[in-house]
Design a protein around this nucleic acid. Structure first.
Lengths: 235, 235
DNA sequence: AAGTGGTCTAGACCACTGT
DNA sequence: CAGTGGTCTAGACCACTTT
């Protein structure tokens, strides 16, 4: 197998994304037109068009017919619920964040997790951390990390840095997938969040991607009575 | 100027969606190939390809190269978390939506609702509707509407139009605020969603704004075991 | 008038699946 | 083998915006 296998339109997307990620093209800036991309990359206009159209569809760019294509302002990209660092969120409320590390280990993860991470090796790093807001447990973070992506994960001091912060630092975040559910937490989880029997929990399943690979899968449990997600859409 | 204004690829999408919505093509069924669509609708293959590709991207269809295109089974993973009309969402999955109106009345709302709506008058319209997906209850919609914004609300046939659709039609939607919570539903709600005691529900509190005013406040309860919100963030 | 996006065509080659 | 999706090309016409 030679170099190809990557479709041309993906190369065009990458060509554009590279400049946005590097900061060369800031939000609001004009992106090269389809014609320019055709000349720069020696592709047909339909190929450039597909690449740009997909970036528009994913909210990275926006277009105005007759005018041009622009880097989207990410906050207005229609994010209903924000991806936030729990430590930052607590700090913004003027409260004190504290983390307690219950587990930090290398193990063979459950099959469901293996499937989500599409692990190449057998083992993964695993951390189990409780985040407190003013000494009240707010989130239980049950996270699995691909060792190939973050080999130093077991040496991180999670009292000072959240795992999310660490992963962002060692591996550029490309994509995040979320699933939000309401569940009655398993018996192993409820007491860690100070939940009585039968109380509901908000579960966020978060998969992060870096360099085209799945980097981590996290189960984030929150006390239903103390946590909510807020979102605003304008327009 | 005549009929067109609707792009061809949209017509192709509609051509396919119509058969899925009507039940002619059930989940798992094979959809006409690109070649067949080209012959049926007199479009070029690239146009048919774009139509099908967009339906795949929105989760309605799935493709297997060399084999065929099929109506997608259930929610796989992709749905972007948006403000969606529940009827549309169900329809896009190729399922049947049905609504049951339990209440439709004018009343003096609870103080908590009055505060959310910032009502000028004392009374508000109130509707209580259960939405079914293939005869399984998916959402309980408990909605309060400011009569000043939608005076005809009590006369709407909610079996044909969702309240969201009606409100969009009479009052331009400017802004939507969401709060997502996990709760154990009140005893009055659980049986309407077919939930047993102690089962969790995902509650979305939605406030809509129109012409600078608060138009409606809705409590949307969903069975935790059958409903989830998914979101994808790129970059 | 020149540039931009929006759409569409009629071919083409490829890898893969099923019979 | 014929059929399918996956991709790509080199043109084209249109409506619109910018200069």
């Amino acid at each position: 197998m030679s170099a190809a296998a990557v479709p041309l339109y993906e190369k065009v997307k990458h060509h554009v994304l590279k400049r946005i990620r590097s900061g060369e093209w800031q939000p609001g800036a004009r992106v090269h037109s389809e014609h320019e991309l055709v000349r720069e990359l020696n592709v047909s206009r339909m190929t450039a068009n597909r690449a740009i159209r997909e970036l528009v569809s994913s909210g990275v760019l926006s277009r105005i017919a007759g005018s041009g294509t622009f880097v989207a302002d990410l906050r207005s990209a229609g994010h209903p619920l924000q991806i936030r660092n729990i430590a930052t969120e607590i700090a913004e409320r003027g409260h004190v964040h504290r983390a307690e590390v219950l587990k930090l280990e290398r193990l063979v993860p459950p099959e469901a997790v293996r499937a989500r991470l599409k692990l190449r090796g057998r083992q993964a790093f695993h951390s189990l951390v409780v985040h407190y807001e003013n000494d009240v447990p707010l989130q239980l973070e049950d996270r699995y990390v691909d060792p190939a992506v973050a080999p130093g994960y077991l040496d991180v001091d999670f009292l000072k840095v959240t795992s999310h912060q660490y992963l962002m630092a060692v591996a550029p975040l490309e994509r995040v997938e979320h699933v939000v559910k309401a569940v009655v937490p398993p018996a192993s989880v409820a007491p860690l969040l100070g939940l009585g029997a039968g109380e509901a929990a908000l579960l966020i399943e978060r998969t992060t991607f870096s360099r085209g690979r799945r980097a981590s899968f996290a189960l984030l449990y929150h006390a239903g009575s103390r946590f909510e997600l807020a979102g605003v859409f304008d327009l």
